[in-house]
Design a protein around this nucleic acid. Structure first.
Lengths: 218, 218
DNA sequence: GTCTATAATCCGATAGAC
DNA sequence: GTCTATCGGATTATAGAC
């Protein structure tokens, strides 16, 4: 019954974290909600951070579920747009999970965090796939899909984290519009054609013989 | 001598925070480093978070100093580019301050956080000014400078926070290059001309009579 | 007014009996 | 596997000496 107990603990841990947040999360409270004493938990989890690491795992499961919905789109453009929207939906509907996934405590320094790192890579891969598709459909310029994915991911995450921290004071509805508009700006570019051309030249000079388009052709 | 004492505490608090980070920051340690006991601190600061709020203020002072350096640039383009670079410099040279400013604990829910909110607005204003300049110099398309500023700010912050959290595993040197390249992508745009035009059309439809260029002309 | 001493209450984690 | 007991440490509040 060891595994069952672990699952029961994890379920309660998720509830507790979602209800009381990171500050209100303690092993003693968790034990109380399970009807046992704190030391009993250490038979199943080595530390509090180990528990939170599994909570992160649950958060990823939810996020993947959201993003998976974007694959229902019929065209690459649908899937590309929906991916961005579903990511926003996840952040606004599960802000606590979003925080523990992307803004929370450093779980990275914990051994056994490879699972989290893998999930991060999987996420990067997901964006990369959507971009590759969109490039194939003629929506995006042919460039390194991973690099472009990082740009889009960073922009979306930056917006969301600033909003969740209250640094962009507005309503959810207003933020949804801002998110959409800002993503459109990233796609169309902020610079003038003249300036963009000059940046491209500088780029070509800094990496001679490695045109940015050639590497994504294969 | 009440104010002097407060300053002494704040100076030690900054040192302690920069040395031991957020986890290692405690009122006891702070009191020890000052040669007093913990309860004495509560004569000058109502809570630990109040102390951290002042530390945040110090962080802002440093950031403003960095950004102020960008104003030394002679042309709008210089100032525009240097602003982005100085922001990166600050993040990499003072990651602890960057964390407490943009990724740290929620100080927003604290009363007396207006100062922080004001500083956030001032930061937004700074970006807005740089963009306005760059638009005037023909570098950026004429659009709402505040909205474009949020886009650029969010992208830079997203990149930096992902890197500082270890989700973009690479060296500082590599990250500097990624930061530069990704910013260039935001300026040139990720979408094809065809897709960008279509997005502009959708935009015009969703806000009829309010062309995105006209509002920034005045 | 300023500081010390003490204590209450919480936390994470461990040892050892059952 | 679970309990009791306990350690070491944290925040916070109160009482009282100087």
């Amino acid at each position: 019954m060891s595994i069952e107990q672990r699952d029961r603990i994890l379920a309660c841990a998720c509830d507790l974290y979602l209800a009381d947040g990171l500050d209100g999360f303690s092993m003693r409270k968790l034990a109380r909600s399970l009807g046992v004493t704190a030391p009993a938990l250490y038979r199943h989890y080595g530390s509090k951070e180990r528990v939170l690491l599994d909570v992160v795992g649950e958060g990823y499961r939810h996020l993947v579920q959201y993003l998976h919905g974007a694959l229902q789109g019929r065209t690459p453009e649908d899937r590309f747009r929906m991916a961005g929207e579903r990511f926003l939906d996840f952040a606004l509907e599960h802000p606590r999970y979003y925080e523990v996934l992307f803004m929370g405590v450093d779980l990275v320094r914990l051994e056994g965090h490879e699972e989290v790192a893998d999930q991060g890579c999987a996420l990067n891969q997901f964006w990369s796939d959507r971009l590759r598709e969109a490039m194939g459909a003629g929506l995006l310029e042919l460039r390194d899909p991973e690099a472009s994915g990082v740009t889009l991911w960073a922009h979306s995450h930056g917006l969301i984290s600033l909003y969740l921290k209250g640094m962009l004071p507005m309503s959810d509805e207003e933020f949804r519009k801002l998110y959409r508009d800002s993503n459109a700006r990233v796609l169309t570019g902020l610079g003038t054609r003249h300036y963009a051309d000059r940046l491209a030249e500088e780029r070509a000079e800094s990496t001679p013989g490695m045109g940015s388009t050639t590497e994504a052709v294969g």
